[in-house]
């Protein structure tokens, strides 16, 4: 057998054991054996998703301990979070040398907690960045009420464990509000609305499919076509110039008639002719007012026909508007 180099082996074993012990110590496996600790617990009425045994407990951001246990109290569906606090993180005064300042004993720490709770200290679950990991933050939160749901949740020291008040986490409040909003939305009877909408649409469909509607539209179209033809003929015959000419001739005629009637008046002043001429004048007056009123009528008819054409065009494009009235103009 080749002789083993025992020195080398011994060195190897020593080094590895040393490294092993150093690694184990630095990871804090035996911390609980050497450090003075305080026990705390708090109750929360929300999901503790993201919180684990070993998650950090921080006091105003200073890591002071870790979660030792998370349990559910079945009766109230409350989650109880047990925490171990490293008392060496709490120093009474700044001291001459902060390293030699002794850590406070547990009872003093509990007393300190009591006084701080009166000032508003409470626990809250906080998310640690975007990682989904959470921790317990102890701080004086503004605008929040610490919850003490029942006498058993009252803050204070019982059985060597200090019970801390807690307040719902931001997420929890947010979730609560969201839940409320969602609950309100949930009260809307979407089913009924949709049923009504469906029946309405069905009826509309029925109406649209009614052959009489088609006939109606067809009739309207024929009437319109005829009207349009008439208007065109009228337009053709009654161009304003022609109309003016006709009216001028009519005027001339009327004037000559007036001249004639003046002469007749003179002649027949004494006779009963004036009555006759007056009635003739009336006629002629009515003629001269009549020409402009015809003109207006024709113009108006033209306008009306334009409007009618637009309307038909629109109905053609949006048949549903017959039912729903004119919607927003299509661009």
């Amino acid at each position: 057998m080749q002789d083993t180099n025992k020195f080398k082996l011994g060195l190897f074993v020593t080094i590895s054991l040393f490294v092993f012990i150093a690694a184990v110590l630095s990871m804090g496996v035996f911390d609980s054996l050497f450090k003075s600790r305080a026990h705390m617990a708090t109750f929360v009425e929300e999901s503790v998703q993201g919180l684990n045994s070993g998650s950090a407990v921080k006091f105003r951001g200073v890591p002071i301990g870790s979660i030792s246990d998370i349990t559910i109290i079945m009766e109230s569906r409350t989650v109880r979070i047990d925490m171990e606090i490293d008392l060496s993180k709490f120093k009474t005064t700044l001291g001459k040398n902060i390293f030699t300042t002794p850590s406070i004993p547990a009872p003093e720490f509990y007393k300190y907690l009591h006084s701080e709770i009166d000032k508003g200290l409470c626990c809250r679950i906080e998310p640690d960045g975007i990682t989904g990991i959470k921790y317990i933050e102890m701080d004086f939160f503004k605008d929040v009420d610490a919850r003490h749901a029942g006498p058993e949740f009252q803050p204070g020291l019982r059985n060597g464990i200090f019970f801390m008040p807690s307040t719902p986490s931001l997420m929890s409040s947010l979730r609560f509000n969201m839940t409320e909003i969602l609950a309100n939305i949930a009260t809307i009877d979407f089913r009924k609305i949709s049923e009504e909408t469906i029946s309405l649409l069905e009826r509309a469909n029925k109406t649209l499919n009614d052959p009489r509607l088609d006939n109606l539209l067809n009739d309207a179209e024929t009437i319109l076509k005829k009207a349009s033809e008439t208007v065109e003929t009228l337009n053709g015959t009654l161009t304003p110039e022609k109309l003016d000419l006709t009216l001028a001739e009519l005027d001339k005629t009327i004037r000559s008639i007036r001249l004639l009637s003046d002469g007749l008046e003179k002649t027949l002043a004494t006779s009963k002719i004036p009555q006759t001429t007056a009635s003739i004048r009336e006629l002629s007056d009515s003629f001269s007012t009549g020409d402009s009123s015809i003109k207006m009528t024709i113009l108006k008819l033209n306008e009306a026909l334009d409007a009618m054409t637009d309307l038909i065009q629109y109905i053609n494009d949006n048949p549903s508007s017959v039912l729903h009235g004119k919607g927003r103009a299509k661009q």
Partner: peptide, 13 residues
């Protein structure tokens, strides 16, 4: 003895 030898061979060396 072999065990020590192999410990030396696999470990220290």
């Amino acid at each position: 003895r072999e065990t020590l030898f192999y410990m030396n061979m696999c470990g220290s060396d």
